[in-house]
């Protein structure tokens, strides 16, 4: 409608301009200067009317939208309208008023705990829950209201992640594949008379080597002491073998 009216006005104006210009030209035949001025003016007037028609059509549009808004606005009372305004500050995940609010680069508001949980749920597909734009922890902006005294980044208040828990398997219950199974490869040498030496190597096939006890405990000291004693014994034995 705006376009049509503009066309009409333009047509009329062009006709008028043409008409006037003809008259002007005739009159300007005697006075040359005004005609030149007229030709300078003409495009401006067209431009102005064009703007006017555009603005009028905008006005029409505005009045139309405001009237329709008025129709809708009659039904809900003011309380609901207030609620609607509150909705603007609701987290898109829990639908409650956003706490520790953060906003994504695509402009969507969340509670940080909610968004964090969402990102944790799908670590390999981190998308905005509203528009599915790519988001990440570093690409959200924390929001600070005036009332908030603590100016701390809500992202620092991540719900503490549960620490990894792993328990050692019970040793000795299952056959651990000749001691190779769990990465603890060990060899044992035995020197002695033939049938007994055989036993020393075969007899500890099944059981894995016991774990080293932690530093500082009395057990650790004892183990260190014992290993030294046996080292000396072995050296003495070898010396005796060589000398004998």
């Amino acid at each position: 409608m705006g376009w049509k009216s503009f066309q009409k006005i333009k047509n009329k104006l062009q006709w008028k301009v043409g008409h006037v210009s003809f008259v002007q030209r005739v009159t300007a035949a005697s006075k040359k200067n005004p005609s030149l001025e007229f030709w300078k003016l003409a495009p401006k007037t067209i431009y102005r009317t064009q703007n006017m028609s555009a603005s009028t059509s905008e006005e029409v549009r505005e009045t139309a939208s405001s009237s329709s808004r008025g129709d809708g606005g009659d039904k809900p009372n003011t309380k609901e309208e207030e609620k609607k305004e509150d909705n603007l500050l609701e987290c898109n995940i829990c639908l409650d008023t956003a706490k520790d609010a953060v906003v994504s680069l695509c402009g969507h508001l969340f509670c940080w705990p909610c968004l964090h949980q969402w990102l944790e749920t799908r670590p390999n597909r981190q998308v905005c829950p509203v528009c599915k734009a790519a988001i990440s922890r570093d690409k959200v902006v924390p929001l600070y209201g005036r009332g908030s005294t603590k100016q701390e980044d809500p992202r620092d208040k991540v719900p503490p992640r549960p620490a990894g828990q792993r328990t050692e398997p019970e040793p000795g219950n299952n056959f651990s594949g000749f001691g190779f199974g769990d990465g603890g490869f060990h060899m044992s040498f035995g020197i002695g008379a033939f049938p007994f030496g055989f036993f020393t190597s075969t007899f500890n096939f099944g059981e894995p080597r016991p774990n080293v006890s932690p530093h500082g405990t009395p057990q650790y000291m004892e183990e260190q002491f014992l290993s030294k004693v046996f080292l000396w014994l072995a050296m003495l034995f070898i010396a005796w073998l060589l000398l004998a």
Partner: peptide, 8 residues
């Protein structure tokens, strides 16, 4: 399934 988003 996989295209679920928390804002739905």
């Amino acid at each position: 399934k996989d295209q679920w988003a928390a804002a739905m």
